[in-house]
Write a protein that binds this DNA or RNA. Structure first.
Lengths: 226, 226
DNA sequence: CACTGTGAATACCTTCACAGCA
DNA sequence: TGCTGTGAAGGTATTCACAGTG
């Protein structure tokens, strides 16, 4: 019925991935007391082109005013609704190593509508230990967390060797959204969404570009290449 | 001369972003003593389709053997070279808050060819403090790090309010590659590459999908919608 | 009249399907 | 024979450019 292999009945994946950026820019503008903003201005603040911003927003509906721009509060509310951020999303962090502890201590989740409801680890020796004011709990608590707290999102911060197991237990408990920091490919059944964040991968991509810069510099220095 | 808006004379950006995943899979296979691998097997291990894997690898050259597959060691070496990982890349981490400290303690950088040569912070009160066995150094050390250590990549782990300033100082010192963890859009001159990693953005994208799941479940329960 | 919303054009990416080679 | 490498096809995403409108 709709247009393309979007998120089925809805917004293209690429657009969805940019909405949080728009929301952040709008929130900043609102904080500065800005009432109305043009696509050009908002696009600048979000680091995209104005045409792309308008196309992205057109998927949500017509919330702008021709000749004027967008009402900052209104648009922020619409994007918030589109992303499903009108409710709080309970999150559990699995793996209490360095990264897990840093994530547990990160205060930014709450600010953006996510509530860390539990810190988990498969290592019995860590159980009960206090991390950022919360006790480390066993993986066996997962089903209860889904049932009682509505746990919906799992963050995997385990070593890569334990990532698939952590993922399996999250999925078995009913979690459908996973944010994976482990450098591993996770196999999940249909209907479960995994997003990967990997520091090494990012650095390696930067290395590729750094290498190009180095190569270009060398070429300029000693004018070679046809 | 070549095909498209690739990385100009080379590999499409989308392919480059997948190469680290292939390299990781190959390293794992090599660790298990595997000598040769087919595109199908390697694609599975990396979580992509075999057609995509072959197309990606074709940008590097012809390193497979028809009817057989790829030599694991050989292909790993080729990808390593393509990514520019035959040398070590010096990295500096800016911002010694929770996240910066976790990154400083992360031992995975060294394993993949990156060397953390300095930990920096703009806050004078932190100077000299020991973090993961290294002293926190002032931002004014940056030019020296580029000149003496060949610093090439900066990791920004500051609060968003300080991110642009940190970035400006990195760029002014000569750094051309930046990995930004702050939830902010960074403005940089041409030739500087920025990659963004933002936890909140990732969670918000997952919230969008979680919402869809919730909506679908509700629709199934009480059969509505045309 | 300035700015949005959007078809049309373009660029890019992925998948298909098979020719060609060890 | 079995698997790679790759043109061609099919999708998706982005940009262009302008008609429409408060």
């Amino acid at each position: 019925m709709s247009d393309a292999a979007t998120t089925r009945r809805g917004i293209p994946e690429a657009s969805v991935a940019r909405l949080p950026g728009y929301l952040r820019a709008l929130t900043t503008l609102a904080g500065h007391g800005v009432i109305s903003v043009s696509s050009e201005e908002l696009a600048n603040a979000a680091g995209v082109s104005s045409a792309m911003l308008r196309k992205d927003l057109s998927h949500l509906g017509s919330y702008g005013v021709r000749g004027v721009g967008y009402d900052v509060e209104r648009l922020a509310a619409e994007i918030t609704a589109a992303l499903g951020l009108t409710r709080e999303w309970p999150v559990a962090i699995v793996g209490m190593g360095n990264l897990g502890r840093a994530l547990a201590a990160y205060r930014g989740f709450e600010e953006r509508g996510f509530e860390v409801v539990a810190l988990l680890d498969g290592d019995r020796r860590l159980l009960g230990e206090d991390v950022a004011g919360r006790p480390v709990r066993p993986m066996s608590d997962l089903p209860g967390l889904v049932a009682d707290e509505g746990l919906a999102i799992g963050v995997i911060a385990t070593p890569s060797s334990g990532a698939q197991d952590a993922c399996d237990r999250l999925v078995a408990a009913g979690v459908r959204s996973v944010l994976n920091f482990a450098p591993a490919v996770l196999a999940v059944p249909d209907g479960v969404v995994v997003r990967n964040v990997d520091l090494s991968t990012e650095l390696q991509i930067l290395a590729f570009h750094g290498q190009r810069v180095a190569a270009a510099a060398a070429a300029t220095t000693s004018e070679v290449v046809a």
